[in-house]
Design a protein around this nucleic acid. Sequence first.
RNA 1: GGAGGAUUCGCAUAGUGGCCUAGUGCGCCCGCCUGCUAAGCGGGUUCCGGUUGAUCCCGGUCGAGGGUUCGAAUCCCUCAUCCUCCGCCA
Length: 418
Amino acid sequence: MIDLRALRENPDAYRDSQRKRGDSPETVDALLSADSDHRSALQSFEALRAEQKGLGKQIAKAQGEEKQALLERTKTLAEEVKAAEARVTATAAAFDAAGKALPNLVADGAPAGGEDDFVLLKEVGDTAVPEDVRDHLDLGTALGLLDTERGAKASGARFYYLTGDGALLQLAMLNLAVQQAVETGFTPVIPPVLVRPEAMEGTGFLGEHSDEVYYLERDEMYLVGTSEVPLAAYHSGENLGELSEPVRYAGWSSCFRREAGSYGKDTRGIIRVHQFDKVEMFSYCRPEDAAAEHERLLEYEERMLQKMELPYRVIDVAAGDLGTSAARKFDCEAWVPSQGRYRELTSTSNCTTFQARRLNIKYRDEHGKNAVAATLNGTLATTRWLVSILENHQRPDGSLGVPKALQPFLGKDVIEPK
RNA sequence: GGAGGAUUCGCAUAGUGGCCUAGUGCGCCCGCCUGCUAAGCGGGUUCCGGUUGAUCCCGGUCGAGGGUUCGAAUCCCUCAUCCUCCGCCA
């Protein structure tokens, strides 16, 4: 949900934002008109209600005939109040729907356009393609690290088993991510992965991405696609106080995605799967601190990628590819030699006050007034990283070099074929 | 799965149809008093929205949503959460 006062004051900013996303600016005008309808309905209801309350007080004191006369009048008034209230309910519903249809205001720096209109911010490392490169599935299967055939047998397409050193490799990476998160001031959290509708709705995942979400109808619960959801819901309805320093959490969870509409895309290996594990950073801060916090999250992501000794690039994601909640997004994409291209390994979003407004998360500003907080999130490690780790650290003899930072967790510096 | 109890301002509690414009205590904020501190005294203190230059004012808000009524914190229904107990179960 965007800031309505800001919208009323400067609708053009929101119309421009819609154009940058490649969306219709008319969504803004639909919301403005729903807002004004709602407010006028509210005003007529409030006027009638005030009259009713006033009469109620007179009735309490009145006696006999006078009381009877007043009762006559309030009966018709009660009808009018009820009708006015119904109009408020109707206009409020229309207004809510119009509000949900409008995504977050795109940040000034974000490039306009669609998926291919990103701005390249930097490239790090050497993107060589080794001779006789094997892709992560060949290598991982040969080394006994992963098993997609049995994954399909048990659960279907886009499922997999991580086995032996493959399982240990993922645990090592996730543990390293948690260790780094704790060192940089994040509170580690293992959150619930089944959430109620409000949590899903509040984080903005039931809009255009609702097809992506697993829903358990019998229990009216959703399986989360990222721990961003339970970490955002963690403080929903709360006031976080001064918030002079950002409040930071690192969630470790399994993540579930339906991958609807991606038939035929990335069907090989574990690039795009229905279930994976992830360590996710999540920050609550004052809106004026959000841009700086966003840079910080990006830096922590890069630090992890460097520990994995992976070549990568950083892109400033274009407005059309931001999703509902983000005002700006930076992705880190790591080199995947078998494909000869970069693939997304991390994504950090500044959601400004968009999620917090829906989830009713406040802080106390410098004047002591309640104000809506900002939320941000970013990836520290996921199962997909194994793709790039396997392919970039493969050796001509068929073994896999273990990145230095993972060696203490894994207890070895090379994974040999059996 | 079943039975009972609870949910009121940051915390604790009062409130069984109009006197609730929700009281009181604690905490917190401001002031007074006072060598200092504490105590004492006075005032303020739910949140959201509308309106306004700002105040004022108005409406909503007693877990959520419906209903009864001229009028609901209070009566009725549905739901959520927590607690106690019974049953089942890893």
